[in-house]
């Protein structure tokens, strides 16, 4: 289930600001728990979205959160965070950012809501990190992955603007 990411920002921002659709959010959480966002066959081949998520994560997110989601000296290990965060919470933090700056800590996650390199692949990144967090995918590059389906290429072009 994929929406246009710009519409989804509006949805999530709405959730954050008003909290009026809490019931719907809970429904989504439940759905996310039922259905794993990644698919790995018996021979270890990961589906395209999970592989795509690996690439995009290790291009943008890893500069703070470390290679393969293992964390760094200054940003948390997402392999751990994804054990706690719901899809909606993950989405909200990526879109709007997060800040903890005081005398002891200088932590600041930027808002990626306007970055197509993140937003066009947010579900992919989530799938990859969830797979890492569940232990379904190990460190490094997945050895085998499914080919890029034509609809993924199409969606990518549409989202990234050509």
């Amino acid at each position: 289930m994929r929406f246009d990411w710009r519409r989804r920002i509006a949805l999530v921002t709405g959730l954050t600001l008003c909290g009026v659709v809490a019931a719907q959010a809970q429904e989504n959480v439940a759905a996310a728990e039922e259905e794993k966002p990644y698919h790995i066959t018996d021979d270890g081949t990961v589906d395209w979205p999970t592989f795509s998520g690996f690439r995009r994560y290790n291009s943008v997110c890893h500069t703070c959160h470390g290679p393969d989601g293992v964390g760094s000296t200054f940003a948390p290990a997402l392999t751990e965070s994804l054990k706690r965060l719901s899809y909606e919470q993950f989405f909200e933090i990526v879109v709007n950012g997060k800040q903890e700056v005081n005398t002891a800590v200088q932590k600041k996650m930027p808002a990626f809501g306007l970055d197509p390199n993140v937003m066009c692949y947010l579900d992919d990144i989530y799938a990859y990190l969830k797979a890492r967090s569940d232990g379904a995918v190990g460190r490094g590059r997945p050895e085998k992955h499914a080919d890029k389906p034509p609809e993924a290429a199409e969606a990518e072009n549409a989202c990234m603007g050509g």
Binding site: R55, S59, V60, T63, N117, G140, R141
Partner: peptide
């Protein structure tokens, strides 16, 4: 390292990297 470049879009103030690396 392993290095895989891919398409990236420029947005002012956002990372402009376009490659994934394993070291």
């Amino acid at each position: 390292m392993d290095y895989e470049p891919f398409k990236v879009a420029y947005t002012a103030g956002q990372p402009y990297v376009g490659a994934t690396l394993s070291m």
